[in-house]
Design a binder for these strands. Structure first.
Length: 272
DNA sequence: CACGAGACCTGTTCGC
DNA sequence: TGCGAACAGGTCTCGT
């Protein structure tokens, strides 16, 4: 479900207490791991022993990971396809798809809800061991157009699968990749080493534009679970097969690229 | 190194 | 109405 803008929205809500109280500074009283494989590391026994008593000092995001810095360790949460986080009263019984519930000392709880069970949680004193292979953050000003062009040139990959590769660039998923390629008028099957310097700069601007728009809209909500975002109302290409391209009016077409549903305007996004 | 297929999971929607 | 297939915001591993 979540890409960079959705994870950023969740991190801000947990930190700033929008919609539910902030989880900052709360001390963990107990942990309830309800699906074993949700925990990537350490072992169940060690996790339950070690997490209790730690306080949440910061809530942030790196790529699509939520990063909670605790008193001693770092808790990393990856929502994968269907994960979400809910803050609610500790006394409330767990929901059917809650995989991990952290109970705080003050009567609140943080629940990791994940229908498809793809999500993962790490508790570690060395977060770089999990986050170390990620590419740059697309919104980091240190990523210049020149450097991005050089990164594209250094690889021989189709644009769409490359943009989805988290070791190349961190945070894009299927929605925002289709949106960025449409805005940049580039075809998902174009090879990364054939872009001009100008096209690379345009692509980076498009990526930043759609990510910022997504964050401004508090993410997209296209699930049966509404999470408050409304970026789905601003999609240019994603999920709009048969509907008119916002630029030229011709129908958007759906194709498959790298086993992912892909949406393009065949007129605006030419392959040459 | 690049790429495709299959795996991990559950739920919804589509086509017959 | 019923039922199987296809599909879903992600990533990992294995084979060529």
């Amino acid at each position: 479900m979540p890409e960079l803008p959705e994870v950023e929205t969740i991190a801000r809500n947990l930190r700033e207490g929008r919609g539910s109280p902030s989880i900052l500074d709360r001390r963990i009283r107990a942990a309830d791991l309800r699906w074993r494989r949700t925990l990537a590391e350490p072992s169940r026994a060690e996790f339950l022993r070690r997490v209790v008593g730690q306080r949440i000092r910061t809530v942030g995001r790196r790529a699509k990971f939520l990063r909670l810095d605790l008193t001693r360790d770092t808790l990393l949460i990856h929502l994968r396809m269907s994960g979400d986080l809910h803050v609610r009263p500790s006394a409330q019984p767990p929901a059917p798809h809650d995989r991990l519930v952290l109970h705080f000392e003050d009567g609140l709880a943080l629940a990791f809800h994940d229908t498809r069970k793809f999500g993962r949680v790490w508790l570690t004193d060395d977060p770089d061991h999990v986050l170390g292979n990620l590419g740059p953050e697309p919104l980091d000003p240190a990523l210049t157009a020149a450097r991005f062009a050089q990164m594209l040139r250094a690889r021989h990959r189709l644009l769409k699968p490359l943009l989805l590769d988290q070791t190349f660039l961190a945070g894009l998923g299927n929605i925002y990749t289709d949106e960025a390629l449409h805005l940049a008028r580039l075809h998902p099957l174009q090879s990364s080493d054939t872009l001009t310097e100008e096209q690379a700069a345009t692509l980076l601007r498009a990526i930043r534009s759609v990510l910022r728009a997504g964050i401004r809209s508090h993410g997209a909500s296209i699930d049966w679970v509404y999470r408050g975002g409304d970026f789905q109302n601003h999609f240019r290409a994603y999920g709009r097969a048969g509907q008119p391209c916002p630029t030229c009016g011709r129908p958007i077409r759906r194709l498959t690229v790298g086993q992912r549903g892909t949406h393009i305007c065949p007129a605006c996004q030419r392959l040459r």
